[in-house]
Simulated assay, not measured.
Amino acid sequence: MTSPLDSGKFARAGRGGLPAKDIGRLLLRCADRSGLVAAVTTFLASSGANIISLDQHSTEQHDGMFMQRTVFHLSGLAAVRDDLARDFAEQVADKFGMDFRLTEAAKPKRVAIMASKEDHCLLDLLWRNRRGDLDMSVVMVIANHPDLADQVRVFGTPFIYIPATKELRDEAEQRQLDLLRGNVDLVVLARYMQILTQNFLSEVSCPVINIHHSFLPAFIGAAPYRRAKERGVKLVGATAHYVTEELDDGPIIEQDVVRVDHRHTVGDLVRLGADVERATLSRAVRWHCEDRVIQYGNQTVVF
C-alpha cells in the first residue's frame, strides 16, 4: 500500500519544507567573472519567477570557478520548463560559458540501490524513503546475493537478484545495464561489494554514489575493522562519494567520524562503523536528490 508521502502528494522542495509544486532549481558552474549573478536573477525575474533562495561560491577571489544554486517559484513550471531551459541557454549560459541544469522539485529522482549481503545501508535508505525523509523514488534494488530479498519486499520495492562474481562480471553488468539504462536518475551502492567496470560507468548514463569506511587507504581489503583495532585507531568514519573509474577516488560528497578508544572491541567498531555509514550515505543521497551538489574537478560544493 502506497502512503501519501510515497506518492509524492506532499513532496517537499528540500530544507525549509516548501511545497514542491512550481518550485524550480537552477544549478550552474562556470569561470568566475563580473555580472553572473545579475544575469541569472534578471533572467528569472523577466521570466516571471520569484527567487526563494540563492547560494553561490567562488573558488578564488579572482579567476576562479563560480558555482550557484538558485531555488525559485514559477507558476506552471512543469509546462514551461523545457522552454525556460532553452531560453536560459540561449540568453545566459552560452554567453558566460555555463554548465547548468534546471530541475523541478516536484519530480523526485528515480533511484536504484545496489547491494550485496550487508543490510544496514540498504534498509536505512528504504526506511528513510518510506518516512518521506528522502525526496526520491526507489524503483528497484539489485543485489548479487539473494539474502536480503524478503527484507526489501516489505517496502514494496522490486528486488532483482543478479549473481555478479569476477567470472560473471560482464554478463552481470549487461543485465544490470538493461534494467538501469534510461530508467533511473541515480544509482546508490549500499555496500555493493563488487567493482564496477569502466564500461558500466560509461553506459549507465547517470551518477553513481558509493559508501565505504574511511580507513582507506590504510586498511584495504578484508577485515578492515579487525586490522584497525590491531593498530589502535581512534576514529571510525565513512565516506560517501561519486564513483569514477579510479577506485574509491571520486568526488567526495560527505564524510563523518565517531571517536573510539581502547575499550571498544572489533564488534563495537563494526557497529559504530555501520551507524556512521548509514548517516553519511543518507545525507549524501538526500543532498544529491535535492540538487544541492555541484562537481568541479574531483571536488564538490554542497549548498
Rank of each mutant, 00 (worst) to 15 (best):
G273I: 11
V204S: 07
I113T: 03
L84T: 09
D256F: 01
R25M: 13
G76W: 01
L27E: 13
N210K: 07
A149Q: 15
H73N: 11
D248R: 06
L247F: 12
R86N: 10
F155R: 01
L125F: 03
D83I: 06
L77G: 07
I211G: 05
L102I: 14
I252L: 09
S282F: 01
P163M: 08
H57I: 08
A228P: 08
W287N: 03
T239Y: 04
R101G: 12
I162P: 03
E167C: 05
K9G: 01
V37M: 03
P251V: 06
A39W: 00
H212A: 10
D268T: 04
G14P: 10
E254H: 14
I253S: 05
I252Q: 08
R153N: 09
V80F: 00
S7F: 10
G237L: 13
I252P: 07
D94N: 15
T59E: 03
D178Y: 02
R292I: 02
L148M: 04
E254V: 13
I142Y: 02
L281N: 05
H241I: 02
E173G: 02
V302K: 05
R175I: 00
L74I: 00
V138N: 04
M114P: 01
Q255H: 10
I51G: 04
A39R: 01
S34N: 07
S214M: 09
Y242I: 10
M136H: 04
V257C: 08
S7Q: 14
I294K: 05
G8H: 09
R263W: 05
R231L: 07
A45M: 11
Q151G: 04
V139F: 02
Q174N: 12
T42A: 09
M193D: 05
F159G: 04
D133F: 12
L27Q: 15
A112F: 06
R153D: 09
N50D: 07
T239Q: 12
I211R: 11
L27I: 11
T300G: 07
G132A: 11
L247K: 07
T2E: 14
R175L: 03
L54T: 15
I209P: 04
C289I: 08
K229D: 02
S116A: 08
I209G: 05
I252K: 10
V204A: 08
V111Q: 01
G64Q: 02
Y242M: 09
L27K: 08
A223Y: 08
V187T: 13
E60Y: 04
S34H: 06
I51H: 04
E203N: 12
G76C: 01
A78C: 03
V204I: 12
A106E: 13
V204P: 01
K107V: 15
S75Y: 00
T2M: 15
S116T: 15
D94L: 14
D133L: 14
R110W: 03
V233F: 06
K166G: 06
P4L: 13
D261I: 09
F43V: 13
V37A: 11
P4Q: 12
